[in-house]
Design a protein around this nucleic acid. Structure first.
Lengths: 316, 316
DNA sequence: TTGTCGGCCCTTGGCCGACAA
DNA sequence: TTGTCGGCCAAGGGCCGACAA
């Protein structure tokens, strides 16, 4: 029953100094959620969640394009699900690609006390991204060097500051910040026959700087301070395929399970990364959501259910 | 007592289908070693090596810019060094950055039999990179869009096909293959006052394609088939800082140790990645080299010695 | 011997409305 | 309403020798 504000859900992200991610300032939560897409939500800090080691393992395997047929040592003390307290959530964005991901600190808790179920029941409705925004998939003309960016009429009127129509043609300079707090400047002009909104000067620098291609999307948000935020969502291309030069995927699989087992045995905190746009399934979900699904036998959880039942059948 | 040839040392690299690395064709070993730099050598396939789990852990920590102050669970069955048979070596290059790295399959062996010491004594002199090559650090003019690449006179005469000096000016087209078997085409011309060798048309595409900056180096090799190979060595900039969006560095550390412990217990093969240009210390060295250093008390191994002794003192 | 620069040409970037989907 | 195109101009890419380090 708190005042609305999407920032409360990720309070842990603000004010923390950079850990391993690399970005200096904190990530704007609205923009992060915008770039992550409408289906993504993170459990609130301080709440109870369910962590699935195997689901986590599957995300990493998918990221590395690796089959999960590896012979992995048994972790007899590692359950197929772990009830955890979500201590901290830090939002990140890859400085090279702007890919968004989240870092979560989890601590296993005792499941004996039924308090968990009760405490988790205050439905964590994260009413996020109430602010005005628009998202457009880039056309060939938008990404070509030949011209600028054609702004959909409704979008320009809703999001951008109003133009001074006494000018001929009406035009202004726009400033927008991306996830890394870099400022991009565009010339916004209303011209042509028929009249339309365009971004011209500055647009090509953005396209080449972010290495955008036709099919990718851009996202403009006007926040409560009337400032513009600017993000991107790349089309689903092939997985970037990097990151295999450090650790073998076998070691990564083992590392996930061993880290989880160690944390479970000691009730000590551990850290996971959640990559919303690369992951086929979530592996950290609110306990309330999980209980609701279990007790009502809903199938809405989809893949997670398949995974859970498979694990139930094959597990000891 | 085999015929010379640097390819024998990495026979496992040729003909294997791509595993997780991503490159389709096999990496040219001469070019790989050239890009890795003169200090790097890999133990021959089939030989015995010493593997240091902690050294491996330190490389990954350094790659991720992470202090190694993490509380890591004990692996009581994991020794501080493991004698292993080197089953396979596969050379890789990052498709984005051309960063070279090697994938090694190791299998722990019994150290009881003193045969190990004997077998490892046939000094594995890998007489690599006997072929002609030159390496030049790029100047501001070389990387500027204003002009081309100034080829040092000796280098051009030694490596490039001879020009037809009856032409005015003498010029030819050069083709060179990079680590990914991409062909780059350059116009090689001998002109100016005083006369000098230059690469003009095609050069700027290479510079922008590889994202080269002044201070980086390029490497031209003429192989035994008189074909040109082309590689790069980037200046030591800040670590790329990527790769932390998949797995926490804690999990990586644990994964390394757990994977090694599992392999040690079962005498089963495991896989490691060795990144010669990012690593402060080697963690897989020939057994012969190790024995020689131990028994003669040489200090030439440098950091590895520090690490080994530290581990000896603190370990049980 | 070779790094940088001014000169000069020409490709490409980039802003415009026309036109059609 | 908006995606693509031809026209047109300007900025920068890129080849040249001059000159000096």
């Amino acid at each position: 029953m708190k005042a609305p504000g999407s920032t409360t859900a990720v309070a842990g992200a603000t004010g923390t100094s950079p850990s391993e991610g690399g970005e200096r300032k904190s990530i704007n939560p609205e923009l992060w959620y915008g770039c992550a897409g409408p289906l993504v939500s993170l459990p609130p800090v301080g709440s109870l969640v369910v962590y699935f080691p195997q689901g986590h393992s599957e995300q990493v395997a998918a990221t590395m394009q690796k089959d999960v047929d590896v012979q992995i040592p048994n972790y007899p003390n590692l359950p197929w699900k772990m009830i955890c307290l979500l201590h901290n959530v830090t939002l990140h964005a890859d400085p090279e690609t702007d890919e968004v991901y989240a870092q979560m600190t989890l601590q296993p808790v005792n499941t004996n006390d039924k308090e968990a179920f009760l405490a988790s029941d205050l439905s964590p409705k994260t009413n996020r991204l109430q602010t005005d925004f628009f998202c457009k998939t880039l056309t060939a003309s938008d990404t070509s060097t030949h011209g600028g960016f054609s702004v959909p009429r409704r979008a320009a009127e809703k999001i951008f500051p109003p133009l001074d129509f006494s000018m001929q043609p009406p035009a202004q300079e726009l400033q927008a910040r991306d996830l890394h707090d870099n400022v991009w400047t565009f010339r916004h002009i209303y011209r042509g026959q028929p009249k339309r909104h365009l971004l011209t000067t500055g647009w090509s620098l953005f396209v080449s700087g972010k290495r955008l291609l036709a099919g990718d999307s851009v996202l403009f948000i006007r926040d409560e301070k009337q400032q513009l935020l600017l993000g991107i969502r790349r089309a689903n291309r092939q997985p970037t395929n990097i990151s295999s030069s450090v650790l073998s995927s076998d070691s990564m699989q083992i590392g996930i399970l061993a880290a989880a087992a160690h944390a479970y045995a000691n009730h000590s905190p551990f850290t996971v990364f959640y990559n919303p746009r690369a992951s086929p399934s979530e592996f950290v979900i609110p306990l309330a959501k999980y209980n609701k699904a279990i007790y009502s036998h809903q199938i809405t959880l989809g893949m997670r259910f398949r995974m859970m039942f498979e694990t139930e059948e094959s597990g000891t």
